[in-house]
């Protein structure tokens, strides 16, 4: 069954896509910042995992939490030190700022790592699981499961922890949250840090599956954008649905039209959705 295989590939990819997009969605939803840097943060996480693997022999799956924590610290510092200064400004200002920060980060990575494509080669390979006539590559399966675990973890943090409630409260009503004694700039920094954490973790997982180069960051940013629109901004279940939808669509798109068109399909879909259902598949206001 060719279609079954294509569907499996799509779902495996889609799980990872959810993880790519969820941090972008969180930052957009809570801070009202379109973080142009998101793709580069993913690549940074991927490089960190690549070097940890080649230089220190650390398995990228094991490296996920380390990349996450490191990127959290970076994200927190960026928001607290730089972006918080323009939080009251219109969205175009913050967009320009993250665009500029992205140029710096991207060029620093090209300078440091060169633009060559690199990939983690796990040896011996993890192999395949057979389902009837279809195959599930173990590395992709583990990456997807870990990705979904991370997304689910973020959902649980937002719903059940004190800091999570504060993030949701700040998104709903910044002033009312301040009246509860919430230090709003600090919550902004934590939120941006969490967005970077998800990007870095996703990057580590990706290093096992895709060749990475600083030049691919734009593609990931684009995907995050499409998924947010597909799933509806500001809902984690929406990001999950949007990510898997995009994975499956790309998978079938490259089957029918050739792999070159997979990104085109995504953006055509984005346009169609924006015209007919601008709130996304599961779109509603509020972050949950």
């Amino acid at each position: 069954m060719l279609y079954l295989q294509v569907l499996i590939n799509g779902i495996l990819l889609g799980g990872l896509y959810s993880c790519i997009a969820v941090g972008f969605s969180l930052v957009w939803g809570v801070l009202n910042i379109i973080n142009i840097m998101h793709g580069s943060l993913i690549i940074l996480g991927a490089y960190a995992a690549y070097f940890a693997f080649t230089l220190l022999g650390i398995n990228p799956f094991v490296f996920v939490p380390i990349a996450g924590v490191a990127l959290f610290v970076l994200g927190y510092a960026l928001q607290a030190g730089v972006i918080n200064r323009v939080m009251g400004a219109p969205v175009l200002i913050t967009l320009t700022l993250t665009f500029g920060l992205n140029l710096i980060l991207e060029n620093a990575m090209i300078f440091a790592f060169k633009a060559d494509y690199r990939k983690v080669i796990i040896d011996p390979p993890l192999g395949l699981i057979e389902i009837g006539s279809a195959f599930v590559p173990r590395d992709r399966l583990y990456a997807m499961l870990l990705a979904l675990l991370l997304v689910g973890g973020l959902y649980a943090v937002l719903r059940t922890t004190r800091i999570g409630r504060a993030i949701v409260a700040v998104r709903m009503d910044r002033e009312a949250a301040a009246l509860m004694g919430v230090n709003v700039p600090r919550i902004y920094a934590i939120t941006f840090g969490l967005g970077a954490l998800m990007a870095g973790s996703a990057g580590s997982l990706m290093s096992v599956i895709f060749p990475i180069s600083p030049l691919t960051s734009v593609a990931f940013l684009g995907k995050a954008f499409v998924i947010c629109v597909l799933g509806g901004l500001g809902s984690i279940p929406g990001v999950m649905v949007g990510g898997i939808a995009l994975g499956v669509l790309e998978s079938f798109g490259s089957l029918w039209l050739g792999p070159d068109y997979s990104t085109t399909i995504a953006f055509v879909l984005l346009l169609a959705l924006l015209m007919f259902r601008p709130t996304g598949i599961m779109g509603k206001r509020g972050f949950e």
Partner: peptide, 23 residues
């Protein structure tokens, strides 16, 4: 307690009350 109540939409009554205890 602000004018217009300013409760957190999408949050339960209990979570709203717990937000009050945030600090």
């Amino acid at each position: 307690v602000p004018e217009g109540r300013r409760l957190f939409r999408g949050m339960s009554v209990r979570d709203n009350l717990l937000m009050g205890a945030y600090a």
